[in-house]
Design a binder for these strands. Structure first.
Lengths: 363, 363
DNA sequence: TTCTCACGTGAATCTGTAG
DNA sequence: ACTACAGATTCACGTGAGA
């Protein structure tokens, strides 16, 4: 069997290109397919600026059926091209990930984990109509149910997570700043460029040095850049010449890391923020309970959503604290107290209690 | 139409029971369906070495098909039973959530968010073969694509998250300790009892007091307990008599919160509308008074009918505000200010004054 | 040089009601 | 069904100008 050509970007339709690749030839597939967003009209921010939406031609499908056919086609080709011990990652949002996951199961892939990418800086929901869409989902699946020899670098992952098992929820910022590729006018070159940190974790977790990684939706080549950096090989398929060119230029500049560099890559943890509402939801305080200032001469009532009430004033622990002191600001955590059998204690105590029960949450 | 019986647990097969419920009668469905594809026997055989690959594949396909048929059946009945402005939540793990999500989309439900429940204390992966499975996924969906009047208590959620929009990732501990129902031997009564805190957030976010919540997989009644506590009604369907009995006993002990404690931050959209003209009619402003933008460099004159004039432009506070900023839209209540002895104040202050005096008249 | 602050922007299924 | 219009609505972070 001749060696397959690697570290290359193949221009053309991804399904056509896949059909030309030999069976059982790659170790890992990473796929970031179109999400099939179904947007209405324009969306304006509160300051009346327009949101730059993903309305590209490649993300438009007639119907769920069309999208499903497309998904089945590229995915079954990937399955053929994968080695028997190989695995596949697919990333998506709620628009497409359920269809992707169901099709992948139906094709016989065996899901190993679903992984949540928590965005530390997501775009808000400008109209106040839903929860802030603050995550995307990745599915990690072995080629088949019988594949038990997929690669998982358990210890590397544990090391990267302060000696705790790596969990299924990962926190990374969006791809911004210098990492984000821009054209000569400073406009983003690709609407959906993924952060390299995300790809590095995927690659460190599920490949060995020298492995071949296939990305059928290569875009501007984040997978290739991360692969080269980490001493893996890649094959990228991309339809748009402009993206393929950018990807080649980008990857040419990447300097592979030394083994010593790889060892120092860890992730830091920070203290989780605890909203006051969660103290109430958890039952540490109950709606109707009273809070007091340190001397006890002012009191406020807790409501179910974590707001406080005094007379006809209502708001957050901070706002209500500031209002009754006529102060510009107030730290509600230290201002407000709750009754214990030993007297009044600041509600910050409850926050610390909550934190310690959540202590395993790493970044 | 006779009122539907609420605050009750109906014993029997969930699909049969659903068929007896009237159409368009409930406000919310919360469903925690079986995860493991083991419905009424075994859908998925344990891995069996004597079965060859082809048979195995057929077997697997057949299993998913059975699960999909079951899912389609209960879900389309739920869709029928929902009011047009109603919504549904489904919780699941990677074993079933992709099939659930895809079917729900195919049935015409319109996904509003997928929500990640991050477990603060998940069970570790003992064999070190995968990432710690540390989350479950909830899907929140409106009955149909056109339903824009689903309930979302944006302000209550924002309040519960320290004045920041609530995100799509929620962190709660597993249901343990006193909250976990045990039998007389101290063994957990139900294998997948959900934490009440999770249900409280679901209910606070997406229902109004008095709403009817249907749970077709009631189990030991977490949904009913949270609903009763928060002043909502429930209908629980449960197949196992033992669970239904436990649920009834559990819910009987729940003490509902008082109305005052249940009150949450309301949205501005639900407050009574005050036309600007009414501010002028009431004398809070007078025809001929000047209004200013926040920095004071633009001004407009108030006319008797509540219109504003600048030069030869005239119109509503919103129209004129938008025109002079060349903006597509403008909220005149916050854009325009009037002079007070302490400087400029937004005319929204006058609207609030008017609202509170109207509220006193009504009382 | 270093700090502050205004400004821009990211895979988005993003309004409600009266007539 | 449609149109018209009132009016509600944003978090984290990087950049760059100016103090």
């Amino acid at each position: 069997m001749g060696a397959i050509a690697t570290n290359t970007v193949i221009l053309g339709d991804c399904i056509e290109s896949l059909k030309k690749l030999p069976s059982k030839s790659v170790d890992l597939v990473f796929a970031d397919p179109p999400y099939n967003l179904q947007l209405g009209g324009d969306l304006l921010r509160p300051d009346n600026s327009k949101v730059d939406a993903v309305d590209d031609e490649w993300d438009r499908f007639d119907s769920f059926e069309t999208y499903d056919r497309f998904t089945t086609a590229w995915m079954s080709e990937c399955q053929r091209v994968l080695k028997d011990d190989g695995a596949m990652w697919v990333i998506g949002s709620y628009h497409n990930i359920f269809r992707v996951g169901a099709i992948l199961q139906t094709l016989g892939f065996w899901i190993l984990n679903d992984i949540v990418w928590r965005k530390s800086n997501p775009m808000p929901n400008f109209k106040g109509t839903r929860f802030t869409n603050a995550h995307e989902t990745l599915i990690w699946a072995a080629k088949g149910r019988g594949s038990r020899r997929y690669t998982f670098n358990y210890d590397a992952m544990k090391m990267a997570n302060d000696d705790l098992q790596m969990r299924s929820d990962w926190t990374f910022p969006l791809c911004t700043g210098d990492e984000r590729l821009k054209d000569e006018n400073g406009v983003k070159a690709h609407p959906t460029q993924k952060p390299e940190a995300l790809l590095r974790r995927v690659i460190l977790a599920s490949t060995k040095p020298g492995d071949i990684i296939l990305d059928p939706f290569f875009g501007t080549g984040t997978t290739g850049a991360a692969a080269k950096q980490l001493g893996r090989k890649f094959i990228g398929l991309e339809r748009e010449e402009q993206y393929a060119t950018l990807a080649r230029e980008r990857i040419a500049k990447v300097v592979p890391l030394t083994e010593a560099d790889l060892e120092t890559m860890g992730s830091k943890r920070s203290e989780p923020r605890i909203p006051f509402g969660q103290i109430v939801e958890s039952g540490l305080l109950r709606p109707g309970d009273m809070l007091y200032c340190s001397k006890g001469e002012r009191s406020a009532r807790v409501r179910a959503d974590g707001s406080l009430v005094i007379g006809d004033m209502a708001g957050s622990i901070h706002k209500v604290g500031a209002m009754i002191q006529s102060a510009p600001a107030c730290n509600g955590w230290t201002y407000w107290h709750f009754k214990t059998d030993k007297g009044l204690a600041p509600i910050d105590v409850l926050r610390m209690k909550m934190r310690s029960s959540l202590a395993q949450l790493a970044a």
